[in-house]
Amino acid sequence: MEAVQLFPEGDCGLLAVCGERIDDRVGDRVTALDVAIRAARLPGVVETVPAFASLLVRYDPLLTDYDTLAAAVEPLTARTRVHRRLGGRVVTIPVCYGGDYGPDLAFVAQHAGLTEGEVIRRHTAPRYRIYMLGFLPGFPYLGGLDPALFTPRLQNPRTAIPAGSVGIGGQQTGVYPVVSPGGWQLIGRTPLRLFAPDRPLPYAAGDRIRFVPITAARFAELAQKEGTV
């Protein structure tokens, strides 16, 4: 596997490119380097931001500079050359599929040539890796969607998607943690409050998400507890 490449990113960032594709092996390299840099507590580092195939390291330019940081990070990249799956949490997210909760489930089923029940079964089968968070606070970009469920985005995006909506966009699936415009096909919704400014997210990049189907009655019960009614 190719060596990790380091590049300056603006005036206070270092970008470590670990590969050129989206897969578990490259994702493991990103995660391993992220863990190594945070454990090293390098002077001036403000935060690390993992993505599909790269890691952004933000630093305080008053405390360090790119050359100094790159010299410290370069030896740590060697640790990503050994392929090993790093342990991450498995976060369970209950989802009520179809109906008002997933208005595009029928279209996804039609596009795939499957029944709605089979779409749900296939969607809940994997444990999806969280490659990165972005677009919205806490929006997880997930890998591992069954290719049979790949579905094109809406031609005309919605202006407001309910918080908790689970959608499919092209080759990916994800959850909208807050109300937002969006063009993904909505197949369900979770009653959980995934994002709140006063508490940490229930997941992070490198964790895995498992979707579990629930009934509308169970959705209402959990939504009452979560305050997401």
Rank of each mutant, 00 (worst) to 15 (best):
residue 55 L to N: 03
residue 17 V to Y: 03
residue 136 L to Y: 08
residue 50 P to N: 05
residue 151 T to P: 00
residue 67 D to E: 15
residue 20 E to P: 00
residue 220 A to N: 10
residue 88 G to M: 06
residue 172 Q to V: 12
residue 3 A to H: 14
residue 152 P to V: 14
residue 96 C to S: 12
residue 16 A to L: 11
residue 92 T to Q: 06
residue 55 L to T: 12
residue 67 D to I: 02
residue 109 A to I: 03
residue 4 V to R: 10
residue 108 V to R: 03
residue 98 G to N: 01
residue 43 P to A: 11
residue 191 P to N: 14
residue 81 R to S: 10
residue 160 A to M: 09
residue 31 T to K: 09
residue 93 I to C: 06
residue 215 T to S: 15
residue 58 R to S: 12
residue 172 Q to H: 10
residue 195 F to L: 09
residue 43 P to E: 10
residue 131 Y to V: 04
residue 106 A to V: 09
residue 97 Y to W: 03
residue 26 V to R: 07
residue 133 L to R: 07
residue 56 L to C: 08
residue 31 T to Y: 02
residue 57 V to F: 05
residue 142 L to C: 08
residue 135 F to G: 03
residue 13 G to M: 14
residue 165 S to R: 02
residue 163 A to L: 04
residue 143 G to R: 07
residue 157 P to G: 06
residue 73 V to G: 04
residue 114 L to V: 00
residue 83 H to A: 15
residue 110 Q to G: 15
residue 139 F to L: 07
residue 103 P to Y: 13
residue 117 G to L: 05
residue 27 G to W: 08
residue 194 L to H: 12
residue 144 G to A: 10
residue 40 A to P: 03
residue 142 L to W: 11
residue 31 T to W: 14
residue 91 V to L: 04
residue 120 I to G: 05
residue 20 E to W: 13
residue 105 L to H: 08
residue 132 M to Q: 06
residue 114 L to D: 02
residue 141 Y to K: 03
residue 192 L to V: 10
residue 121 R to T: 12
residue 84 R to L: 13
residue 80 T to W: 05
residue 222 L to N: 03
residue 117 G to W: 00
residue 177 P to A: 14
residue 144 G to V: 13
residue 199 R to W: 04
residue 117 G to H: 07
residue 183 G to P: 07
residue 222 L to Q: 05
residue 88 G to H: 08
residue 171 Q to F: 00
residue 50 P to G: 06
residue 95 V to R: 04
residue 35 V to M: 11
residue 43 P to R: 07
residue 134 G to S: 12
residue 221 E to R: 09
residue 168 I to T: 08
residue 197 P to F: 15
residue 98 G to C: 02
residue 140 P to N: 11
residue 8 P to T: 13
residue 99 G to D: 05
residue 112 A to V: 01
residue 70 A to W: 02
residue 179 V to S: 14
residue 186 L to E: 08
residue 207 D to G: 01
residue 127 R to G: 01
residue 5 Q to D: 06
residue 197 P to C: 08
residue 82 V to Q: 11
residue 73 V to H: 07
residue 167 G to I: 04
residue 79 R to P: 00
residue 162 P to A: 12
residue 72 A to L: 07
residue 9 E to C: 14
residue 27 G to P: 00
residue 61 P to V: 13
residue 34 D to R: 15
residue 137 P to V: 09
residue 148 A to R: 13
residue 13 G to K: 06
residue 180 S to R: 05
residue 3 A to P: 00
residue 10 G to A: 09
residue 50 P to C: 06
residue 174 G to I: 11
residue 215 T to A: 04
residue 142 L to V: 06
residue 80 T to G: 04
residue 169 G to P: 01
residue 187 I to L: 14
residue 63 L to A: 14
residue 9 E to T: 10
residue 122 R to I: 00
residue 208 R to W: 06
residue 166 V to H: 07
residue 79 R to Q: 15
residue 99 G to A: 08
